[in-house]
């Protein structure tokens, strides 16, 4: 087990060590994507499409295993966090227009909330709702939208309720890590390969979470400024 850094000096030393000894990949993190900013996202992704190429799960797995990137342009992971409805309505068409693969990190509890409960759920689970552009009150993706996204893009788990895992008791923690994967299996017909929680922990920093991550068959753990590959074979898809 490793201990998360507690000071700036420790944290900076850890990051410097990671950058010095491991391959690095670029990512751009989106969250809420209001339509009023669509032109800004369009320009941003247009610029990135000149510089970078998309990243699939298999390409990431190969890069993690070998450190070798085979495309002419470096890879860029376009991450869309939480599961906002406008990720589908606004961002996804732009991501596709510019030739990228989107990585949707989804909070399953947000998706499972019904219409009028989604705003309270968001406000109680650190899901920012600065812009609220849907008068019908549905702010999250639907499972049907996620099934469509899943055909061409990556769905990943961002836990069930977007809370700090290391503070949780055993049954709640299991729900966050394994229960959310069970929900993906039920709704998508397969498990997802990547897991990210709110603020970590990284794999190796919290033994109970590590055991559950393995039990749920995730291949990749995304945490603060790192991706860890923890399984050699792609997860079973059924």
């Amino acid at each position: 087990m490793t201990t998360p850094p507690r000071t700036f000096t420790e944290s900076a030393a850890q990051i410097e060590q990671l950058f010095a000894t491991e391959p690095v990949i670029r990512a751009v993190n989106f969250h809420n994507a209001p339509r009023a900013k669509a032109d800004e996202y369009d320009r941003q992704l247009a610029q990135y499409s000149k510089l970078f190429s998309s990243v699939t799960e298999d390409q990431l797995d190969h890069y993690l295993a070998t450190g070798t990137w085979t495309n002419a342009k470096p890879g860029l992971i376009v991450s869309i966090y939480e599961g906002y409805r406008n990720g589908y309505d606004v961002l996804l068409p732009l991501v596709e227009k510019h030739g990228f693969i989107a990585w949707f990190f989804v909070i399953t509890g947000f998706i499972d909330s019904v219409g009028k409960d989604q705003l309270p759920f968001a406000l109680n689970h650190e899901i920012d709702m600065l812009t609220r552009e849907y008068p019908d009150g549905r702010y999250a993706l639907t499972w049907e939208q996620l099934r469509q996204i899943d055909r061409k893009h990556v769905i990943a788990c961002h836990s069930r309720s977007h809370q700090k895992l290391s503070d949780m008791g055993p049954s709640k923690l299991r729900e966050e890590v394994v229960g959310s994967q069970d929900e993906f299996r039920k709704q998508l017909g397969h498990g997802v390969r990547a897991f990210a929680s709110l603020t970590g922990p990284a794999y190796g920093e919290h033994a109970r979470t590590d055991r559950l991550i393995r039990a749920a068959d995730y291949d990749f753990v995304f945490s603060n400024f790192r991706i860890q590959r923890i399984r050699a074979e792609p997860s079973r898809r059924a």
Binding site: V24, R26, N29, L60, L64, F225, R226, Q228, R229, I230
Partner: peptide, 10 residues
């Protein structure tokens, strides 16, 4: 935009 270190633990 961010950077992510890619760590193979397998």
């Amino acid at each position: 935009p961010v950077f992510l270190a890619c760590v193979n633990l397998v």
